[in-house]
Amino acid sequence: MEKSNEAKLPTKYGNFTIKIYKQANQEHMVFMSENFHKLKTPNVRIHSECLTGDTFGSLKCDCQNQLSLAIKYIAKEGGMIIYHRQEGRNIGLLNKVNAYALQDLGRDTIEANLELGFEEDERDYSIVKEIFNDLKLKDIQLITNNPDKIAYVESLGVNIISRIPSIAPVNSYNNEYINVKKEHMGHLL
């Protein structure tokens, strides 16, 4: 693992500090409030990359809305976002678009991944352990709906003081996706 120095990043939400962690060919970003290092129990979101949602505003998911909610919350309350660069639950952008094409034919997000020869979720959270160790995180408030992320953080011996839900609006394009996350993946919605 390689890591960058910390650098200031002024944004429309406020002023932040960023740091990059590189693992294999993936570079993950940590986005911290200015007071992050002074917080006893920081708010933390592990946000999985979604180019179509985060950048282009896709309505097929709730990713951009969850990221925006987290940034605004971190700007106000302090903490950090780990921008986990594993696109499409780590199947990559090309395969994510192929999964979208299968969804256009009636598959749900899990069925599409399975039909393409992947597990329903291929993400590897091991970089999170490296980041938590580097930043000496022991007690956090975790911003998530994902029980797998909760279980992984707990497996690191990090104490989750509280879970902060990340509830984004549902629309006609992402309703099925949200239901699959809730009913089949156990998301706490």
Results as ranks from 00 to 15, higher is better:
Glu2Tyr: 09
Glu2Trp: 07
Lys3Val: 03
Ser4Tyr: 06
Glu6Cys: 14
Glu6Ser: 13
Glu6Phe: 07
Ala7Gln: 05
Ala7Arg: 02
Lys8His: 06
Pro10Phe: 11
Thr11Ile: 03
Thr11Ala: 03
Tyr13Gln: 02
Lys19Met: 08
Ile20Ala: 04
Tyr21Gly: 01
Tyr21Ile: 07
Ala24Ser: 08
Asn25Arg: 14
Asn25Leu: 07
Gln26Asp: 11
Met29Glu: 05
Met32Thr: 04
Ser33Thr: 02
Glu34Phe: 13
Glu34Gly: 10
Phe36His: 02
His37Leu: 07
Asn43Ile: 01
Val44Thr: 05
Arg45Met: 15
Ile46Tyr: 04
His47Met: 04
Glu49Cys: 06
Leu51Trp: 03
Gly53Ile: 11
Asp54Asn: 13
Ser58Pro: 09
Ser58Glu: 13
Leu59Pro: 04
Cys61Ala: 05
Cys61Pro: 03
Asn65Phe: 08
Asn65Val: 04
Ser68Trp: 01
Leu69Lys: 02
Leu69Pro: 05
Ala70Thr: 00
Tyr73Ser: 11
Tyr73Ala: 09
Lys76Ser: 11
Glu77His: 07
Ile81Asn: 00
Ile82Asn: 00
Tyr83Met: 06
His84Gln: 11
Gln86Val: 09
Gln86Ser: 13
Gly88Gln: 08
Arg89Ile: 03
Ile91Arg: 05
Ile91Glu: 00
Leu94Gly: 00
Asn95Ile: 03
Val97Thr: 04
Asn98Glu: 08
Asn98Thr: 08
Ala99Tyr: 02
Ala99Glu: 02
Ala101Gly: 05
Leu102Val: 15
Leu102Asp: 15
Gln103Leu: 09
Asp104Gly: 14
Arg107Gly: 10
Arg107Cys: 15
Asp108Asn: 14
Thr109Leu: 10
Thr109Trp: 08
Asn113Ile: 10
Glu122Lys: 12
Asp124Met: 13
Tyr125Met: 02
Ile127Glu: 00
Val128Cys: 09
Lys129Cys: 12
Ile131Gly: 07
Ile131Ala: 10
Phe132Ile: 15
Leu135Asn: 07
Leu137Ala: 08
Lys138Met: 12
Asp139Leu: 15
Ile140Ser: 06
Gln141Asp: 11
Leu142Thr: 01
Pro147Thr: 01
Pro147Met: 02
Ile150Pro: 00
Tyr152Thr: 01
Val153Arg: 00
Val153Met: 08
Ser155Val: 08
Gly157Gln: 10
Asn159Gln: 11
Asn159Leu: 09
Asn159Ser: 12
Ser162His: 15
Ser166Val: 07
Asn171Phe: 06
Asn171Met: 06
Ser172Val: 10
Tyr173Gln: 11
Tyr173Leu: 09
Asn175Phe: 12
Tyr177Met: 06
His184Thr: 15
His187Cys: 07
